[in-house]
Computed example of a mutant assay.
Amino acid sequence: MPKIEAGSVREHRAQRLAQLIDAAEAILSEGGVEALTAGAVAARAGIARNSIYRYFDSIDDLLELLVAREFPAWTAAVEEAVAAEDTPGEQVAAYVRANLEQAARGTHGWRASLSRGSLSPSARQRVRKLHTTLHEVLAASVDDLGDPQPELTVAVVQAVTDACVRRIDQGDDLQAVSAYATDAVRRLLARG
Rank of each mutant, 00 (worst) to 15 (best):
A190V: 04
R166Y: 14
V78I: 14
W110K: 09
L100M: 05
A68K: 10
A159D: 13
A190C: 06
A83F: 11
L63F: 00
Y53A: 10
Q149G: 09
G31Q: 11
A163G: 12
L28P: 04
K3P: 04
R186C: 03
M1I: 09
A23R: 02
D172W: 08
E101A: 10
V137Y: 11
D57V: 03
P2Q: 04
A73F: 14
V127A: 06
R187I: 10
T153M: 15
R126K: 15
R186E: 06
A184S: 11
L134D: 12
L145C: 14
A84R: 10
T132D: 11
E5R: 10
I4T: 14
D57M: 01
T153V: 15
G117F: 05
R10K: 05
V137R: 10
I168A: 03
R126G: 13
A45M: 04
A159I: 08
Q15W: 06
A83I: 11
H131T: 06
E151N: 15
S178A: 13
G89I: 08
I21K: 00
V165R: 08
S58V: 03
S122R: 14
I4S: 09
R166E: 15
L188E: 03
R186N: 11
V33M: 06
A83Q: 12
C164H: 15
T132Y: 09
L145I: 11
C164R: 09
A179H: 12
A104R: 03
A140G: 07
S178E: 15
E5M: 09
V160H: 07
Y95C: 04
P2G: 04
Q15N: 07
E80V: 14
E85R: 14
L100H: 06
V185T: 00
E30F: 08
E30W: 09
H12Y: 06
L20H: 02
S120G: 05
G171D: 05
L174N: 00
I47W: 00
A103M: 00
A77S: 14
R187G: 12
F56T: 00
Y95P: 02
D86S: 12
F56N: 02
D169T: 06
D147T: 10
E85Y: 10
Q125W: 10
D61V: 00
Q149E: 13
A159R: 13
A112I: 01
R166M: 13
D162W: 07
D147L: 08
R44G: 05
A38W: 01
T87C: 10
T87L: 14
F56G: 02
G106D: 06
A140F: 04
E70S: 11
D57E: 12
H135E: 12
E136K: 07
L152D: 10
R191I: 05
H108S: 05
T153E: 13
R97D: 13
S51W: 03
D172S: 12
W110P: 09
R187C: 09
V78M: 07
G32Y: 08
N50D: 07
E90A: 12
D60L: 02
E64F: 02
F56W: 03
V96W: 03
R16Y: 02
D172H: 07
V165I: 15
C164E: 14
L174T: 02
S122V: 06
I27R: 00
G117S: 07
A84I: 08
V142L: 13
D86R: 12
V127L: 06
K3G: 11
P72V: 08
